[in-house]
Design a protein around this nucleic acid. Structure first.
Lengths: 237, 237
DNA sequence: GAGTGGTCTAGACCACTCA
DNA sequence: GAGTGGTCTAGACCACTCT
């Protein structure tokens, strides 16, 4: 009948979610145990377990041993956004990508950058600033600090031909990242780089990357607010 | 030895991730099949399967039947952000929450709002605008359209005592949501509401909520850029 | 056609945490 | 102490998709 069938646990998950939405299982209320549900649905407990685990990951239910499974009382919305490689993002839009290095130097980070790099006082780091263009128009201004003790090979890289963004993805892929998103007004220099007027709204993505607990790099990516959108994906079920 | 032990699949997952990071499994390369890995690690295939499934969800590997499992060639970063209830967010910061309704009327939506609600032409909808305060200072301006055909009970709600945000979470929890984030400059009216100057950067969250395929509501939430941060959670493993 | 992942089952043991 | 979820196993069948 249906096109994308063939997963019993998906069916169980959907039916349980439907019960939550219809208030058959009220917010905050406890729902039957895995064994009971398995019997009701006529499947193995492991199947119910997987369905409930995914509902828990989606924030629909809360599970605790002995206490059982409850419908979440105050749902919290989550959105998963993709922060792609600039180049891939631009090329996916069918636009021509161009990269330009503005500045590369080993310098003493300011207090803010030093704290974010979790560097001891008096330690220098690599500071790189560059621009990414889409069809010739400035798309992203990148201001990055790299911890040379965590990524010593960066010392020998000029970043003339490859952006630090891309270099790091190749050099240290699958590292852990923390992101912060916010909005700010363009200063004189940023406006100049991005081809907007001072005071125009910018969308900022800040990312700190770790590997084995050490901070490798901290970067601030600025986009002109007028053209930039960040979109989340995916529903609950 | 370790504190949080007791999950064989986590161990397998961590070891596989380590191999990817150390380039033992190179980007784009194929890794051994589940059966082979299960034998190597001395566990059941289902255990390896779960580890690999989670790595696939984290974007580290790609899996296809018959083709096998490959390390992702061009990693894509993802960030999961929490978009909490305004009130909960403010109270979690230890600040006093206050809500004020600005305007509530049934009206003809403009072209943009109508399209986002996926409403046929000539259909009216409920338009609500309100403010959320933290310790007396404006924290969020909410501009919302509600599809009265999908949420008819909203017609009888005045929204004088409860924000539409909160009312909808109670009325139709666990609905599916799409989010868009961007930055813009405050106009005259928005600046006035939010207590900032016209032109100041604002952080915008737009959310469209669906249930059973129908759009229930579309909302634009504006925050003063100077004070607002949206933070992502969680590493890969 | 054949190889790989995707899922299900039945049973088992364990870990946590509530009463 | 006892009830619940969390995980593992061994075996099985199936669905997809590459060759």
């Amino acid at each position: 009948m249906s096109v994308q069938e063939g997963a019993r646990f998906r069916d169980v998950k959907a039916r349980l979610l439907a019960r939550v939405r219809e208030r058959i299982y009220a917010p905050g209320a406890r729902i039957p145990g895995e064994a009971e549900l398995a019997e009701e649905f006529g499947c193995a407990r492991a199947t119910v377990s997987r369905a409930l685990r995914e509902l828990a990951e989606a924030g629909v239910v809360e599970r605790r041993r002995k206490a059982g499974t409850r419908v979440v009382a105050e749902p919290v919305r989550e959105a998963t956004v993709t922060v792609p490689l600039v180049r891939a993002q631009i090329e996916a839009r069918g636009q021509a990508y161009r990269y330009a290095l503005l500045d590369r130097r080993i310098a003493m980070p300011g207090a803010g950058a030093r704290a974010r790099l979790e560097l001891p006082p008096g330690r220098k780091a690599l500071h790189v600033r560059c621009l990414h263009f889409a069809d010739g128009a400035p798309w992203q201004y990148e201001d990055r600090w790299i911890n040379l003790e965590a990524a010593p090979r960066a010392r020998r890289e000029s970043f003339a031909g490859i952006s630090p963004n891309e270099w790091l993805v190749r050099e240290l892929p699958f590292s852990d990242a923390e992101h912060v998103f916010h909005a700010l007004n363009a200063g004189e220099a940023e406006a100049d780089f991005l081809g907007v007027r001072p005071g125009d709204a910018l969308f900022a993505v800040e990312r700190r990357t770790r590997l084995d607990g050490r901070v490798i790099t901290w970067v601030r990516l600025l986009h002109p607010g007028a053209s930039f959108r960040m979109v989340s994906r995916g529903p609950i079920a």
